[in-house]
């Protein structure tokens, strides 16, 4: 059951993105930024957490979930360490994903070459 919820919620979030892509001049880079910021805001006002509880990875895997983690981290940091925590909390909570992207990006660029499309 939780797999079905993850599939449907994750899929629907992507459909919203596709509709924006197809009906506006926005590029995928715009969508990434918009969805991430939306995730931070929804996470900040507490609206995203119920969705994470309901859909699990369906809510955390889309970039909205990345924004939610940033917001959660910043709020928790602020709770325990005040202003300094507000600065450090977001990146701390998402450090794994960011570090992985940097390290694996670096490794892949050494191992693989881009291939021409045809």
């Amino acid at each position: 059951m939780e797999y079905i919820r993850a599939f449907i919620v994750g899929g629907l979030i992507c459909v919203i993105g596709q509709i924006i892509l197809d009906t506006t001049k926005l590029t995928p880079a715009h969508i990434l930024v918009t969805f991430l910021t939306a995730g931070v805001i929804l996470g900040g006002i507490g609206l995203y957490e119920p969705l994470v509880k309901f859909a699990g990875a369906g809510a955390t895997v889309p970039i909205l979930g990345f924004g939610y983690s940033l917001a959660q981290g910043a709020i928790e940091g602020a709770k325990s360490n005040g202003v300094i925590g507000a600065f450090t909390g977001g990146i701390t909570a998402t450090a794994g994903g960011i570090a992985a992207a940097i390290i694996f990006g670096y490794i892949m660029s050494l191992v693989f070459k881009p291939k021409t499309k045809n």
Partner: peptide, 15 residues
């Protein structure tokens, strides 16, 4: 968008 929005798409945008 189904490939761009999941965190795997974020990875693709960096790699």
């Amino acid at each position: 968008a189904g490939a761009a929005i999941p965190i795997t798409g974020f990875s693709n945008a960096i790699v």
